[in-house]
């Protein structure tokens, strides 16, 4: 079990990579134009996350002030919008998102021991006031989308005395969504402030490409192959997927691919074209569309697809499409550009 969201980004700090070597002869910072584009495209994604996070926090606050079934449904919808906004930028594993483990704060995953449920039960039983400080010191399993999802969607919890809109639970929901909103806002601001640093250092070109490579790898291996039973012990299990409580594991994958297409692909295509690989750039763009063509049909719960062999075929074709995309980006393009990976957090068991 390994959480790939933890990234130390070693290789970027120690390696003089071929990509940089190749550009060293050109005028200073030959890849700076691509980073300008990436910076802007990722900023768009972060700003969307900040906006959706604010909407979620306001919606949760207004629901808890005047609870109603409609308000509950609207809160779920706001959670989903914000969660999908996070999925779109989830691949970025460097820069301000590393600060204080923000990526984990947004989404602590995987959580095989159900730490989210345990922490919720602990906080609600303890009876201590739920304050912003309490959320800040309670660890990453409390601070993000999975906790809000647990409160809004968990079936067992929703059947209990603590179910929303119970007073203490409402306070927890309001503070957790506030924490998400604040994190989203800070992340967008910090990313703006990171611009000079990002543009000023050529090694961030490799770093950005590696983050997309890792994002695709996580998508293929951990988010899809593992619950499909294609990895590890061969058992199909929806609990290995993320967002199984809200049944949005697949929608989240679609959002992650869409996010890579919007925030990573444009500058990457230009870079490949400039390196005399326009055909490969075109193939990759087409393969993104192949993957996305599985949606919105596949925006549905994963569990029934795992339980039924004929429905499982839908997952298999998504898997094949994603594998091909990963192979184009991580093998062919990375080789052409000379981007190599060092040790990362996925090297454990």
């Amino acid at each position: 079990m390994t959480r790939l969201t933890l990234t130390f980004l070693l290789a970027s700090s120690v390696a003089v990579t071929p990509l940089m070597a190749a550009t060293a002869n050109n005028a200073d910072g030959a890849t700076v134009e691509y980073r300008k584009q990436w910076h802007s495209d990722i900023l768009t994604g972060y700003q969307n996350l900040a906006t959706q996070g604010q909407t979620l926090a306001s919606q949760a606050a207004s629901y808890c002030q005047t609870p109603s079934p409609e308000g509950f449904e609207q809160s779920k919808q706001a959670w989903l919008e914000a969660f999908l906004a996070w999925q779109q930028v989830r691949f970025v594993d460097f820069g301000p998102v590393e600060h204080r483990n923000r990526a984990w704060q947004f989404q602590f995953w995987p959580d095989p021991k159900n730490l989210v449920a345990r922490k919720a039960s602990y906080l609600l039983k303890e009876g201590a006031p739920i304050t912003p400080e309490k959320i800040s010191e309670s660890g990453v399993a409390v601070q993000g989308f999975p906790m809000a999802e647990y409160l809004l969607y968990d079936q067992a919890f929703n059947g209990s005395d603590s179910a929303l809109p119970a007073d203490h639970t409402c306070k927890l929901l309001v503070e957790v969504t506030r924490h998400i909103a604040d994190n989203g806002q800070s992340l967008a601001n910090d990313w703006k402030g990171f611009q000079a640093n990002y543009l000023g250092s050529d090694q961030y070109t490799d770093t950005t490409i590696r983050s997309a490579m890792a994002g695709l790898e996580i998508l293929e291996e951990r988010r899809l192959a593992t619950p499909m039973g294609l990895r590890g012990n061969g058992k199909r299990s929806v609990y290995s997927a993320d967002a199984w409580r809200s049944e949005t594991s697949l929608a989240a994958m679609g959002a992650s691919v869409q996010g890579l297409k919007q925030s990573f692909l444009p500058a990457f295509s230009e870079l490949l074209a400039e390196r005399k690989q326009p055909d490969l750039a075109e193939q990759i763009a087409q393969q993104f569309d192949e993957v996305l063509a599985n949606f919105p049909e596949l925006e549905r719960p994963m569990a029934p697809l795992l339980a039924d062999d004929s429905a499982y075929k839908l997952l298999q074709s998504l898997y094949i499409d994603i594998t091909q995309l990963t192979s184009l980006v991580n093998d062919r393009a990375a080789v052409e550009l000379g981007v190599v990976r060092g040790f990362n957090s996925s090297d454990g068991d």
Binding site: T2, R3, F8, F343, D347, G348, D349
Partner: peptide, 12 residues
Amino acid sequence: MGSLSLGELAGE
């Protein structure tokens, strides 16, 4: 050495 240092011991 590297896998135990980083992914397993420091990380996991």
